[in-house]
Amino acid sequence: MKRREAREKAIQTLFQLDNSEMNVDEAIGYIVETPLDSFYEQLVRGTAEHLTEVDSEITNKLENWTIDRLPKIERTVLRLAVYELLYNEEVPNRVIMNEAIELCKTFGDEKSGRFVNGVLSKFQ
């Protein structure tokens, strides 16, 4: 699985977690079949494990928004991107930000990408 595909699958999995009472293993099983890709699994498990810290960092960068008021796709993309920015040192920040914008184009709309870009630009 290429990294772009791993991120797309991770967004789908994290979106499932945000919209249900599933645990991480159930959500992973709902989205992908075995064998799992290690990068995908790192993204999903890492984001889920560090969700409190990630949400706190996002909240600190939001203006006139709360994390709970964000549309679900934007919140999910931001969570994944901020997890990577904070905990994945092997990927350059510019790549993480570009991937987040591309994920918004795939799962959201033009406004999603601009909003996510605006929030993520505050992490530089």
Score class of each variant (00 low, 15 high):
I96L: 06
D68F: 07
V95D: 13
S112K: 00
H50Y: 11
D37C: 15
I101L: 08
E8R: 13
E53M: 08
Y30G: 00
P71F: 04
T76W: 03
R94M: 07
R3E: 15
T106H: 11
S121N: 14
N19K: 13
Q42V: 01
R7P: 00
V116A: 07
E63A: 09
T34K: 15
G29M: 03
L80F: 02
K61P: 03
T47C: 14
R114F: 12
L78E: 05
V82Y: 08
I28F: 05
K2V: 08
R45V: 10
I31W: 04
V119N: 01
E49K: 15
D68Q: 15
N88L: 10
E63Q: 08
G108M: 04
L43V: 14
K111V: 02
D55Y: 11
V119R: 01
L62A: 05
R94D: 13
L51G: 01
Y87S: 09
F123C: 08
N60F: 06
I96D: 10
S121L: 05
N88S: 06
T106V: 15
G46A: 11
L80E: 13
N64E: 11
M97W: 00
V116L: 04
R7Q: 12
I58G: 09
A100E: 04
R7T: 06
P71W: 00
K9L: 15
E8K: 13
T66D: 11
D109W: 03
D109R: 07
K111Y: 09
K122Q: 13
T76P: 01
Y40C: 11
V82N: 08
Q12N: 05
R45A: 08
T76Y: 06
D55M: 07
K105T: 11
R79G: 10
G118R: 05
Y87Q: 04
S20P: 09
R94F: 05
V32A: 06
R3P: 02
A81M: 04
L86F: 02
L14P: 03
H50P: 00
K9C: 03
Q12D: 10
N64C: 01
M97L: 11
L85Q: 06
A27R: 07
R79F: 02
G113H: 05
A81N: 05
R3F: 12
E84A: 12
L51V: 12
A6C: 09
I101K: 13
A100F: 06
V119Y: 02
H50L: 02
A81L: 04
E102N: 12
V32L: 04
N60P: 00
S112V: 00
Y40L: 08
R75T: 04
L43A: 08
R69S: 15
N64K: 10
K61Y: 04
G108S: 04
R69L: 12
E63K: 12
D68Y: 09
E57V: 07
V119I: 15
L14D: 01
Y83C: 07
S56K: 12
L43K: 03
I96C: 08
L86K: 12
G113E: 10
E89C: 00
S112Y: 09
H50K: 15
L14W: 01
V95M: 05
S121T: 13
F15R: 10
I101A: 14
D18F: 11
T47Q: 11
L86W: 03
L36W: 02
E89M: 01
S38C: 02
E26F: 07
D55S: 08
A27Y: 09
V77P: 04
E102M: 07
R94P: 00
N23F: 07
L36D: 03
F39W: 12
E84S: 13
I67F: 14
V54R: 06
N64I: 00
